Computed example of a mutant assay.
Amino acid sequence: MSDSWPRRRLLAILRGASEPLDAQELARITGQHVTTVRFHLDVLTKESLVRQFQQPPRGRGRPRIGYSAVQRSVGYQELALVLADQLGPDPRRRQEAAVAAGRTWGARLDAVDKPVEGLDAAKEVVVTLASELGFAPERDPSGDTEAQALIRLTACPLRELARTHSEVVCGVHLGQIREVLERNGAREELNVRLHPFVEPELCVVRLEMQARRDPTPVVAEANSERIVAPSGGRVPPQLRNGEANVAKQTSQQW
């Protein structure tokens, strides 16, 4: 099974589903022909990686066959929920703790070893890592530019927990990605963001190349007053442009 990308993706989707899915639903999600999906499901069933369930028919006809992933780690979802609840009530602190935990986890992963010397190499590393972790990643060339790359995560082993604890689950995943990228040589100019649930079953990783920071503090003028930038050397855009308001971001990002 490990050498079959379609079967790995089907298994990842079933692991993230809250209820059994039939072949037609899986064909709709993956874009594969339903006959091809049934073939892969038969293989996964024979390998005891998925289990079949009889489901009521839609209207008239024979009962449908639903498929659910066999859970190898008993109580893993419940354990993850308990651990998430132990991080305290403050969402920002929970997120920071989760990212730190993800970095620790990422440092222990026997993950891809490929020098990150540019945006394309970084994208390949993230796609490979996400595939190994069960996220069924897809490249999104339509959103790529010279300074940005997008990776679509179409599955998640902890999707249901992420719906209620996204700052924890997605924070851990973000920490893993950042740690593996840095371990492969990514520099600080590479910014990594994770946008959870841009669609009900889709998350997006955004890789951005940023200009090098000037270590010399920048002095700017706004509203006839001299403003000295913080130690990072950047003047906020709203001050450079003399604007008082900044457009609110429409999606959550870390």
Rank of each mutant, 00 (worst) to 15 (best):
D113S: 02
L133H: 11
A136K: 09
R139V: 03
T128I: 11
E138H: 15
F135E: 02
A136I: 05
P137A: 08
R139Q: 10
P141R: 03
V125S: 08
A122Y: 03
G134L: 01
V126E: 10
P137Y: 10
E117L: 11
E138D: 15
A130W: 08
K114Y: 08
V125T: 08
D120N: 10
E117D: 10
F135L: 04
S131D: 15
F135R: 00
L133V: 09
L133A: 14
A122W: 05
K114L: 13
L119G: 07
A122Q: 04
D113A: 02
A130H: 07
P141K: 04
R139P: 03
A130C: 15
V116M: 06
A130Q: 13
E138C: 14
A121E: 11
K123P: 04
D120S: 13
D113N: 01
R139S: 09
T128E: 15
D120E: 10
G118A: 06
P141M: 02
A136D: 10
L129E: 08
L133D: 12
E124V: 12
V116R: 05
D140E: 13
L133G: 12
A122G: 06
A130Y: 06
A121W: 04
S142P: 00
S131P: 05
V126T: 12
A121T: 06
P115Q: 14
G134A: 02
R139T: 08
F135W: 04
T128F: 10
R139Y: 04
P137M: 08
T128R: 13
A136H: 09
S131H: 14
A136S: 13
E138W: 13
L119R: 08
A122D: 05
V127N: 02
D140R: 02
R139A: 06
P141F: 00
